[in-house]
Design a protein around this nucleic acid. Structure first.
Lengths: 252, 252
DNA sequence: GGGTATTTGTTCGTATGTATT
DNA sequence: TAATACATACGAACAAATACC
């Protein structure tokens, strides 16, 4: 009853109805294959939902379900009013135990930038106080930053420092644009990462906006503790990395 | 024109139509608040989609969109035919540089199990050969495992070992159920993690099934290299961790 | 074990809203 | 402003998985 003789392009690739596989999944798998085969180049615009619905002989909702799947897996980027585009390849970036952000980016030949989003001096939240090994409520400096590589946002971070040890840190950071360079002003020539916790989750709306990632693309959330040569905690950092653009590498 | 005087329960919490916020989002935010407020306890069953549609005065599709959002963020677990349940709190599990799986679980007072899914002796794929520092095509032993804590799956892994150095490893592992214990049989009393790469992504269908996680819950994918006391590479492991149940901790 | 009710999953159709070009 | 393209929402029907008797 449904065989459509030959009035449709080859690409119709006839879905099998009533088999165990949902139509939307067959469509997403077809498009995934076409993308990996290069039928649709990276950055290229895909046909509109209406056109795809026509091509596969299904309702537009069914196409939308397939597109949602592809977006979820980071293969496409969808924007209302503009269209749907094949996702541009990820930028790889490594982070190590003693490696600094700018150093790292230089090695990768990328243009690095650490943008200061916000700063404050405030009483330490209990969790922050515990990690900095100071009493709860003692004042800490908070720097909220966003890192970029070649203009593309890589990560968001909140850096916490004990306020008494680093007077005027905010201004110095604003000047240097680097945590490492700021530490140098206080005589800290070397500091190491004592511990890093890593987890993965989906981004909240702030992260979606500032990292420019889709709702469905996971971030890696890290908690890092940096200590000076004497083992004193000098920084506690909470970061979220766009997992599509970064791979964390721990040497040890 | 639509104001519904007072014939509806308090919980109707009247959505605002035509405001800037989509109905499905208002619903998901309402339910999220109720969950965090304890109106729906962890593990408790939520009302059915039909009931929620009735309660909010919307179509079931609209409720489903809200539920998809909550599932995406790990707040609920949805199973066809069973219903929708508030997500049970995550099990925290730590992994360090010299820490072993069983050791780790003992410290956490959890019942550990390392299940052998598959094993083979095969020519090393190029990527594996590079990491093991052997020639491409040289035979390696592959162990595919699944780890459990208290019966809940935590991670999947493929472990690669140079075949010449570990003859009979498959049988020994089947006997001991532990990589560390197996190594001991070959005189390797100590080994350390040389490098670990971490990234995050959404699970493929195999991972969804074997880790028992929803399509939208990210996994942390790791590549780890273990070396013996002489610095010789003894194992290359590819793992994926259920990020809802594990947090990776790197000490260093 | 088997049949039935319940609950979520898929698919179609239609209409209207909103962002971009 | 107009056209295009994705986003939201409603209604209906059936499929598939599970729970219950």
């Amino acid at each position: 009853m449904r065989d459509a003789p030959d009035d449709r392009p080859l690409t119709a690739s006839s879905l099998s109805r009533g088999a165990g596989v949902a139509l939307w999944r067959q469509i997403s798998e077809t498009l995934e294959r076409e993308i990996s085969d290069g039928v649709h180049a990276a950055g290229a615009r895909l046909p509109t939902e209406a056109e795809l619905a026509e091509r596969f002989g299904v309702n537009r909702h069914t196409v939308r379900r397939a597109m949602a799947e592809l977006e979820e897996h980071g293969l496409i980027d969808v924007t209302q009013g503009r269209g749907t585009f094949v996702h541009l390849g990820a930028i790889a970036y490594l982070i190590g135990r003693r490696t600094r952000f700018h150093e790292n980016m230089r090695r990768e030949n990328r243009h690095a930038r650490l943008e200061l989003l916000d700063s404050a001096i405030e009483p330490a939240p209990t969790a922050v106080a515990r990690e900095l090994e100071i009493a709860a409520g003692v004042r800490v400096i908070r720097l909220d930053t966003r890192s970029h590589a070649d203009g593309l946002p890589l990560s968001l971070a909140s850096h916490y420092f004990p306020a008494t040890r680093f007077p005027g840190l905010v201004e110095i950071f604003r000047e240097t644009g680097s945590v490492t360079a700021s530490f140098a002003r206080y005589g800290i020539a070397d500091y190491t990462r004592k511990r890093t916790r890593v987890s993965a989750r989906l981004p909240d709306s702030r992260e979606q906006r500032l990292l420019e990632i889709a709702r469905t693309r996971p971030v890696m959330a890290t908690e890092a503790i940096n200590v000076d040569a004497e083992g004193q905690v000098v920084e506690f950092g909470l970061s979220s990395f766009a997992s599509d653009r970064i791979q964390l590498v721990f040497e040890g």
